[in-house]
């Protein structure tokens, strides 16, 4: 029976809680962002465009987006495997491993940054073995990819895990009964079911990577045009008291953030509607 909002509400506190929420969000989020827009309006569109598309800025976008994309792809591939083994395969110490997946959420980014830089430096535990092979990771764009892979790791795993848990064994059984091999079942039945979640996790990891600062700067080397990410360029401009330049780049980053947020929302909506279609009777069972 439909029972949408009524004029007078039974549960108390609607006005108070919504009021608190709106005031808090306005003061903390909307007003400051409006401040940024206000500051940016001191620039003409042409000036803004000139700063936003300067050679150094364009190079920083390439580094940021390229590394983020690569890291998100690595995470999508390995994240799928990790999520799969965590849900499906028994192995000793599984609980510890499962908890450890959240480490990048819990470990401060600066700590991750200095640790990865030390590990992959020429004399580090890992770098020591890579250097003779001619692979330099620390202080190169490859280092940025390593740091962003670390940062984005939980996103794909944590979005996929509940979806894999929810796959009903019946659909795999049905595929097998219809003569599909395990590989066919995986590619034709399971992967399409997991795809929206995989894409959502990928997008979340990608979006987090674009804005990441703390873990990257220690390992990146930070050479302008080669290994300088956009957030670092903003800091560099600030340190030279070029507030206007920093603001112009911040506006670019903010627009990208909005686009990513919309993309994540759209993806989640898409995934949910697919899921809903797939098990339309779920409501009745409840």
């Amino acid at each position: 029976m439909p029972r949408p909002a009524s004029g007078r509400r039974l549960l108390p506190g609607f006005g108070l809680s919504l009021g608190c929420t709106l005031v808090y969000l306005s003061l903390l989020i909307l007003l400051p962002l409006a401040g940024l827009a206000f500051k940016a309006s001191e620039l003409s569109l042409a000036q803004w465009w000139a700063i936003a598309t300067s050679e150094r800025a364009l190079a920083s976008y390439r580094v940021t987006f390229g590394a983020s994309l690569l890291a998100a792809m690595i995470n999508a591939f390995f994240g799928l495997i990790v999520a799969w083994i965590l849900v499906r395969y028994p192995f000793p110490g599984k609980r510890v491993v499962d908890s450890l997946v959240d480490l990048p959420f819990a470990l401060p980014t600066a700590v991750a940054g200095i640790t990865l830089a030390t590990l992959y430096a020429g004399n580090g535990w890992i770098g020591r073995h890579l250097e003779p092979l001619g692979v330099k990771v620390a202080f190169t764009p490859l280092g940025i990819v390593v740091a962003l892979t670390f940062i984005g790791l939980p996103f794909v795993v944590r979005t996929l895990q509940p979806v894999i848990e929810d796959i009903e064994p019946e659909i795999e059984e049905a595929a097998a009964m219809l003569g599909a091999s395990r590989w066919q079942t995986f590619t034709r039945v399971l992967l399409p079911a997991l795809f929206p979640a995989l894409l959502t996790g990928f997008t979340l990891a990608f979006s987090r990577s674009i804005g990441e600062y703390g873990s990257v700067i220690f390992i990146a080397g930070n050479l302008p045009l080669i290994s300088e990410i956009t957030p670092l360029l903003i800091i560099a401009k600030l340190e030279q008291y070029d507030v206007v330049g920093a603001t112009a780049l911040a506006v670019v980053m903010l627009i990208i953030s909005f686009v990513m947020l919309l993309a994540v929302n759209a993806l989640q909506w898409w995934a949910a509607s697919r899921l809903h279609r797939r098990s339309g009777s779920a409501d009745e069972r409840r």
């Binding site: 029976m1 439909p2 029972r3 009524s6 004029g7 007078r8 039974l10």
Partner: peptide
């Protein structure tokens, strides 16, 4: 039948829903 308004009426009697 469901949707006939019986639950709404009950909730109005209880004061959990307000009538127009």
């Amino acid at each position: 039948p469901s949707g006939c308004g019986k639950t709404t009426l009950l909730r109005i009697i209880a004061g959990m829903e307000s009538a127009d």
